[in-house]
């Protein structure tokens, strides 16, 4: 997916030392703040929500080929840990190979989904996960193309609030909003 054209990188991305973890603590804070903001905004624009640590190393986000600079795996770890501390990242697996990048929190996703259901007269109807993620009705929605497991998390949240019920039908997952 190369929607890089519409996404404008901040000035730091062209600044070579941005890709080296800074030894000065104050400078490092600036650097990490800038990286976290960049990750979140990049993921939001591209409507991505999962990061694979290995793959990301060679992605245009963490590797600037023009400059011939890229983030080391250690530095990527530090950045992801910062995101985790601010509640913007959740590890999917124990080995910390994949994570959800929460440019919207799970709660916020729940609200967005519920809002969509209300606005589109979907209360008391069953929608399959497939319809929600890939359906023609949802192409303009922010959750279009969303990772299924993340969708499940958000819907579980709604379920907890008694606003939805998750249904399993012949191996397909669906949800009924109330």
């Amino acid at each position: 997916m190369s929607t890089q054209d519409k996404f404008e990188m901040p000035w730091q991305y062209s600044f070579p030392p941005f890709f080296t973890l800074q030894p000065n603590l104050d400078t490092r804070k600036l650097q990490l703040d800038a990286w976290c903001a960049l990750v979140l905004s990049y993921f939001r624009t591209h409507r991505l929500c999962v990061i694979d640590v290995n793959e990301s190393q060679s992605s245009p986000l963490f590797s600037n080929t023009t400059l011939n600079r890229k983030l080391s795996p250690e530095t990527i770890s530090v950045i992801l840990d910062e995101l985790r501390k601010t509640g913007n990242l959740e590890w999917i697996d124990k080995n910390k190979r994949r994570a959800w990048v929460l440019w919207k929190s799970v709660d916020e996703w729940a609200k967005v989904l519920y809002r969509w259901a209300v606005d589109n007269g979907m209360l008391s109807t069953v929608c399959t996960f497939y319809e929600l993620i890939h359906g023609q009705d949802t192409t303009e929605e922010e959750f279009h193309g969303m990772d299924q497991d993340l969708l499940l998390k958000a819907l579980r949240c709604l379920e907890h609030q008694k606003r939805a019920e998750i249904i399993s039908m012949d191996g397909n997952m669906g949800v009924k909003f109330f």
């Binding site: 600044f15 070579p16 030392p17 941005f18 890709f19 080296t20 800074q22 400078t27 011939n68 600079r69």
Partner: peptide, 19 residues
């Protein structure tokens, strides 16, 4: 805080560049 460190400039990272 005036300068940043760049460890990826030189061949084999031998020369630190300050920016």
């Amino acid at each position: 805080g005036f300068a940043w460190v760049d460890l990826q400039a030189g061949v084999g990272n031998s020369d630190i560049v300050y920016w």
